[in-house]
Design a protein around this nucleic acid. Structure first.
Lengths: 338, 338
DNA sequence: GTGAAAGCGCTAACAG
DNA sequence: CTGTTAGCGCTTTCAC
């Protein structure tokens, strides 16, 4: 510990009473006389006494730290989730430890190990793109540590989950495109193993079905990174079909798609409309502004932390899944009159 | 603690030896016989024994946690710093706790308090825009906790510092603009109290001086947020002077400036060139691509963590300041031939 | 109403 | 080479 740290013993010595009395006074124990309480508390205040969390943890009160494993911090959505989760956790007297998997399975395993070794009270996870084996998550459960998944959930483990209403978000986006007169809508989709991909594809299909537009499997293309867009978009544009809209799985891919589409001489939104997913900071900065599905990351972070802390307090509660509503934010990339 | 946790005692009991022997065996103490060491280590391995960090901390070994206070996690540069710092710290057996000030002085104070209360071994800080009073940082020093500033440093406190070569970065950017034939270069600058603002302004001035272009105070405008750009840029464009370049303090402002400039009918880079600072993900996504000064955030994070850990190990070392070089990344927003 | 003592998991000084 | 003891800061029986 560091020098400035005042302990319960110091106070006891100064006041010539026992450490246990000080402890009780500090915790407002009914046995202690008001007079003693007052003396203790005022000295504690004067000396800036702060209980040593380490000692508390060792006594068995938990570490008051929750771990978070996310793919990348450098992602508008995830950073918003972190903010929401951190704010809620802090309010409740918890601290947050963040680990990034960088979308790599091995890093995810290391992070789980690290958080477990650190004796965190609970763990919040959004699964990496490349994770197939879920063994490390089972380990968390076996160790008796509460686990909550958010956004990129793991279906094979029965835990609390918080998800975005991806299906509905995708549905709204595609419906909007259809109502704007689009017929040939390409869906640039994420890694097929992720549940969010499946859900967004379903929403896309539901909207097409509703308007009796035939669904063509070839119009659903795995493309969720800028580098992929660089070669996929040109090849799509050069194909014989006349595409009039792209519904993209994230804003970055959407922005890059927009850039490529413009370079090919198409006008946006006149010739081709584009919709993204996230509604991050770039959505306002593209030219034209990008229509995008807002995922309410901050709210999701808060809910995730809330669910995790509830479970920490009551480990036997039945698991639940909460769904965060999405919103479509329309800008000029899909509608001339937005 | 949680159920699965094996302790030194458990191992001692199983092996019918004392806990101290187990402890020594685990730490490869020379006094212990190879035979005992082997028995202990293999059982420890088998039972997945992991030393309880809480107990270690209580013994006085420190918490092996370092705190980081940054303005916003949701910022390309800062998130890169976090990644670099986290990677280095983890390598060295430390964990990281991140706090966001959201550019608010009161949050910064709370974060300092929280980290101090959590007994972190050291703190890394990048000062918020709105911080004027440095009292809370002095508190850290008084408590004997190592403190290192990065990027947005505090000059009135003698600590280790890691800064970006802002002056040189700005100089390179402006020199590049001049060599591209620009004469009337507006500098959109950050909060004037920050040292980085001053340094970038100096670099701007040095470049102009070098080419004997008169420096006009009015061409240095405080404008570092999208919302400010929304009204400042139009008023600049409508003024009588014919501006041919903007050197912006960050990529977001640059992107927004680009958008507004285009809306006013100017061609980029033909009529007006734009340069940003950060070289984040948006720099590739604007249309045209944004020329920007790369700050090497990841490297800065690593260096910061390294300096902090060095100080944790040797509190009496003289303080030092390290400078991270910047790079100019040229794209089409400033040069037709990039 | 308050104190003494034990213990959380671990290490280290002191014995043998 | 190994065991015993004490103690890190705190809470919590158990005594008085």
């Amino acid at each position: 510990m560091n020098k400035g740290d005042v302990t319960i013993k110091d106070i006891a010595k100064e006041l010539k009473i026992s450490p246990s009395t000080v402890s009780r006074a500090l915790n407002d124990h009914p046995d202690i006389s008001p007079a003693t309480k007052k003396r203790v508390n005022s000295l504690a205040e004067k000396w800036n006494y702060v209980p040593n969390p380490i000692a508390l943890s060792l006594k068995g009160g938990g570490t008051k730290i929750i771990g978070v494993i996310i793919p990348e911090i450098n992602h508008y959505f995830f950073s918003r989730v972190i903010s929401g989760g951190e704010d809620y956790a802090n309010e409740q007297g918890y601290n947050v430890m963040i680990c990034q998997s960088n979308e790599r399975y091995e890093n995810e395993i290391k992070s789980v190990q690290m958080l477990l070794d650190s004796r965190v009270d609970g763990i919040l996870v959004s699964v990496s793109k490349r994770t197939r084996n879920m063994e490390h998550f089972h380990t968390i459960i076996k160790r008796g540590v509460p686990l909550v998944f958010f956004d990129r959930i793991c279906n094979e483990i029965d835990t609390d989950r918080i998800i975005v209403d991806d299906e509905e978000g995708a549905y709204m986006a595609v419906k909007h495109l259809i109502l704007e007169g689009r017929k040939k809508i390409i869906h640039l989709s994420a890694t097929p193993t992720l549940q969010i991909s499946k859900d967004r594809i379903e929403g896309y299909i539901r909207a097409l079905n509703e308007f009796r537009i035939p669904v063509n499997e070839e119009n659903i293309v795995k493309c969720d990174e800028i580098e992929e867009a660089d070669w996929i978009i040109p090849s799509l544009l050069n194909s014989s079909q006349k595409i009039d809209a792209f519904f993209c799985v994230n804003d970055f891919t959407a922005a890059q798609t927009m850039k490529i589409v413009k370079k090919h001489g198409f006008k946006i939104p006149d010739d081709i409309a584009i919709v993204g997913f996230t509604n991050g900071r770039i959505a306002k900065l593209t030219d034209p502004g990008l229509t995008s599905v807002d995922q309410h990351g901050y709210e999701m972070g808060q809910e995730s932390a809330r669910l995790l802390l509830e479970r920490i307090k009551d480990k036997n509660r039945p698991t639940q899944t909460r769904i965060i509503k999405t919103d479509l934010v329309v800008r000029n990339s899909s509608s001339p009159t937005a």
